[in-house]
Simulated scan of single mutants.
Amino acid sequence: MTELTRKRPEFRNINAFTDLTTYRLPPAGWVSILHRASGALMFVLLPLIVWLFDTSVSSELSFDRFTAAFAVGLGFVPGWLFKLVVLSIIWAYLHHLIAGIRHLYMDASHAVSKEFGKSSAIVTLVLSIGLTVVLGAKLFGLY
């Protein structure tokens, strides 16, 4: 049997442990799923985002408390864990923004070819992860 005439597998009852681990999702699929996940993450962490903004702009005393949360922590949450949560917010915002611009561009220009979808998805992933690494280095005091 040649490659073209080979019968493709037919899944009727998908087992999440055996079938989904062998499925290869294309880059556009990963970007789409991560776009939804980043939106959900920002929604869930919205109270923290509002608190961060309010604490940083209310007064000098509250700004000192804001910077102390990153340095030594807040309550039982250590500073490094607080920074990781903020880093996840940074990634969620950047990925959601870049993927959203990608989706809007594809909707406006009707550029929905398979090649463009793959290349724009890779650019989206590289940009969002790259910018997150740069801002994460700044957040953790590497420069």
Score class of each variant (00 low, 15 high):
66 F>E: 06
15 N>G: 13
23 Y>R: 14
79 G>M: 13
114 K>G: 01
110 H>P: 04
15 N>I: 12
108 A>D: 01
25 L>F: 15
5 T>K: 10
74 L>T: 15
7 K>A: 12
15 N>Q: 14
62 S>K: 10
121 A>F: 01
104 L>W: 06
130 G>T: 04
134 V>F: 13
42 M>Q: 13
88 S>L: 15
90 I>R: 03
107 D>S: 06
82 F>H: 05
129 I>R: 00
93 Y>K: 03
68 A>H: 14
81 L>C: 06
14 I>R: 13
34 L>V: 05
28 A>P: 02
69 A>I: 12
67 T>N: 07
12 R>K: 11
109 S>W: 07
68 A>D: 15
7 K>Y: 09
138 K>D: 08
98 I>D: 00
109 S>F: 13
117 G>F: 11
42 M>N: 13
112 V>S: 04
42 M>A: 11
22 T>L: 14
43 F>D: 04
136 G>E: 01
113 S>M: 10
73 G>I: 13
44 V>R: 03
127 L>Q: 05
32 S>N: 13
58 S>F: 10
8 R>E: 13
62 S>V: 09
105 Y>G: 02
31 V>L: 03
27 P>R: 01
26 P>D: 15
9 P>Q: 06
70 F>A: 04
128 S>I: 01
57 V>P: 03
58 S>V: 11
48 L>V: 14
62 S>D: 13
109 S>I: 02
13 N>K: 10
116 F>E: 02
61 L>F: 11
18 T>F: 14
40 A>C: 05
99 A>T: 06
139 L>P: 09
111 A>P: 02
120 S>H: 03
42 M>F: 14
52 L>D: 11
9 P>S: 05
45 L>G: 06
117 G>P: 07
52 L>C: 09
17 F>P: 06
100 G>P: 06
116 F>V: 14
94 L>T: 04
8 R>H: 13
68 A>G: 07
130 G>L: 07
30 W>I: 14
90 I>L: 12
79 G>P: 09
102 R>H: 08
98 I>C: 00
59 S>Q: 01
94 L>W: 00
45 L>F: 15
54 D>T: 14
40 A>V: 12
41 L>Y: 15
43 F>H: 02
124 T>N: 04
102 R>F: 08
51 W>A: 06
83 K>Y: 03
79 G>T: 14
85 V>W: 10
25 L>T: 15
37 A>P: 03
134 V>M: 08
18 T>P: 02
73 G>E: 09
103 H>G: 05
37 A>S: 05
129 I>K: 00
120 S>L: 05
104 L>I: 10
31 V>H: 01
124 T>Y: 00
83 K>P: 03
9 P>M: 08
21 T>A: 08
112 V>L: 06
77 V>Y: 01
122 I>F: 07
110 H>Q: 12
2 T>I: 08
